[in-house]
Computed example of a mutant assay.
Amino acid sequence: MAKIVVAQEQKDSFESSLFADVFQLRYEAFVNRLNWEVVADNGRERDCFDDLQPYHIAIKDDEGRVQGCWRALPTLGSYMLKDVFPVMLQGESVPRHRQVWEISRLVVRKGAAKPTHGCIGDISVDLVLSFRDFALKHGIRSYVTVTTLAGERLLKMLGVRLRRLGAGKVIQVGIEKTVALWIDVNDIPEIKKN
């Protein structure tokens, strides 16, 4: 049975092993598997946005190992779309509101998921469900995110209504074709797992 854990690094020191697992999983996915050009050290991927006390939402298996995760940052300060990928806004104003947060660094451990919603794995479904739960607990109305076309397709397959920001064009970022998305929390369905 998967367990969802929500923690902030500075506040939840009791979860220090969680953060080590999250950064290691991100390294495995973004450096080893996807070959992205990201900051990595000692088998862990951690960037400057992790210094801003974001929330890390993780799914742990029965043995306590992180199988999937994502990071949440409010748009009132620095965040990836605004500070790293502003070109993705394509003319739209920079989102900045206490009820609008950014989803970033979403990852699922390769080979860990079991199909549950058509061809989509259970961990991906649980992560998307956690968007809604996290938002309701933190007064979040909408999310923004920069994601790959595959990430956008997964969200649509799960019934999440979303819109591309700005002109909505696909932009090549490194080796990935990417889009910036706006997701209203009310447009995240309560997904039924098979």
Rank of each mutant, 00 (worst) to 15 (best):
W70P: 13
C119P: 07
D187Y: 07
T75K: 05
P86G: 10
A112D: 05
A113N: 01
R65G: 07
G91P: 14
L136R: 11
R105P: 07
A72H: 03
G139L: 14
V146M: 01
Q99A: 15
L129P: 06
L89D: 03
R109H: 04
E45F: 07
K110N: 07
D83P: 03
T148F: 03
I188C: 15
R71C: 09
G64K: 06
R161H: 13
I140K: 05
G151E: 02
S130F: 12
A150V: 14
G174L: 13
L52K: 00
K82Y: 02
I59D: 01
T116W: 00
V146F: 00
V108D: 00
P95C: 12
E190H: 14
V160W: 03
A135P: 12
R71Y: 08
L181V: 15
A180L: 11
G111N: 06
D61S: 08
L181G: 08
L89A: 09
S142H: 05
D47W: 06
V100E: 00
V87C: 11
G168P: 04
K137P: 12
S130A: 14
D184L: 15
N186S: 15
V160C: 12
K169S: 14
K137G: 14
V66Q: 03
R141H: 12
R65S: 10
L162S: 09
D47H: 05
A135G: 11
Y143Q: 04
E190G: 14
F49A: 03
R98L: 13
R132Y: 15
D62N: 09
I183Y: 08
D61F: 06
A167N: 10
P95I: 14
D126Y: 04
I59K: 02
G111C: 10
F131A: 06
I171C: 12
G118F: 07
D184M: 15
L149N: 05
Q99R: 13
Y143C: 09
F49C: 02
S124R: 01
L158S: 06
T178R: 07
T75Y: 04
K137T: 05
E92Q: 12
G77L: 07
F49K: 00
G64R: 06
A135Q: 07
V128Q: 02
G111V: 11
P54Q: 06
F85T: 08
S93E: 09
R98C: 13
E45Q: 09
L89R: 01
V179W: 04
E176W: 06
L89C: 10
M80N: 01
T145Y: 00
Q67S: 11
Q53L: 12
C48S: 10
V125M: 03
P115Y: 01
V185T: 11
E63V: 11
A135L: 13
L73V: 00
G168Q: 07
G174C: 12
G118M: 10
A113S: 14
V128P: 10
G174I: 10
S104V: 01
R132W: 15
E92G: 12
P54S: 09
G118K: 05
I103R: 00
I175R: 15
G159Y: 02
C119K: 10
